[in-house]
């Protein structure tokens, strides 16, 4: 068991190293990167919008009720909502959405290519799966996930605004001035930096699981499920350590 995990980690390190070397050597298929970016960004933006919008509303509702319990009126709604969204909820939520939507697709696609010998065909035609398939997916996820996280911040804040206005009668100008005072450059970067790491986690695990899917369709299915589960768990674990690190570095 331990030996297996160690072997996995070694293979992941080797794969990631190869990807980074190709990127540094600029051996990148730009067209494919663009296609992948659209696949990652465009296809997830609606889900990110819906989930973040409603999370924003739910937060505003919860915080409002909680503060009524304590202070008998809804105070600090925008402040609390602002930093909890930007620092924690948006990056994690977006990463989970990308895991489910993009990570699963990557694993299933690469796995299917493996069992139909398309990965072998890449070798015979003068390239290799890491260079031709992994690099573009790495770049696409690495740049799109943070962008989607920023979108998610915006959508969530908008959701919170609508609820605060209709339910708690907080004016839009008060809401935004509160938001702006609660979100500093550092709070923003706290979440933004985390989203880059989450992107790497998702894409590394899903590519690795795809390339190492077994030799039949059932195994590809299993790999896909595993890729999603492992990505999510790894995201939560890393979230804790990254948060501790960033807080120690005073990026909060």
């Amino acid at each position: 068991m331990l030996k297996k995990i160690f072997k996995c980690i070694c293979e992941i390190v080797i794969m990631t190293k190869a990807v980074i070397i190709y990127i540094l050597k600029c051996e990148v298929f730009l067209e494919d990167v663009l296609v992948q970016m659209i696949a990652v960004g465009w296809k997830s933006v609606l889900i990110v919008f819906l989930s973040s919008f409603f999370i924003g509303m739910v937060l505003a509702l919860q915080i409002g009720y909680a503060s009524i319990n304590f202070f008998s009126e809804p105070v600090f709604v925008a402040t609390t909502l602002g930093f909890s969204l930007v620092m924690e909820l948006s990056p994690v939520l977006t990463a989970i959405i990308i895991t489910a939507k993009v990570g699963a697709t990557i694993t299933a696609e690469l796995g299917a290519m493996k069992i139909t010998e398309q990965l072998d065909a890449l070798y015979t035609l003068g390239t290799n799966p890491i260079k031709y398939l992994a690099v573009s997916r790495f770049l696409a996820c690495f740049f799109m996930l943070p962008i989607l996280t920023v979108f998610s911040n915006v959508f969530g804040i908008c959701g919170g605004m609508i609820l605060s206005k209709s339910m708690w009668k907080i004016t839009i100008s008060t809401y935004f001035s509160e938001i702006l005072s609660s979100i500093t450059v550092k709070t923003f970067f706290h979440g933004f930096i985390k989203s880059f790491f989450f992107a790497l986690i998702v894409v590394i695990i899903s590519c690795y699981k795809g390339f190492n899917a077994g030799n039949n369709t059932k195994e590809v299915g299993k790999s896909t499920t595993n890729s999603v589960t492992y990505s999510m768990i790894t995201i939560f674990i890393f979230d804790y350590f990254l948060t501790s690190l960033l807080v120690t570095l005073k990026i909060k």
Partner: peptide, 13 residues
């Protein structure tokens, strides 16, 4: 590999 063309049994397109 530049010198070899390979046709897979299952085509592998």
């Amino acid at each position: 590999r530049r010198k070899i063309g390979y046709v897979f049994q299952e085509a592998a397109l």
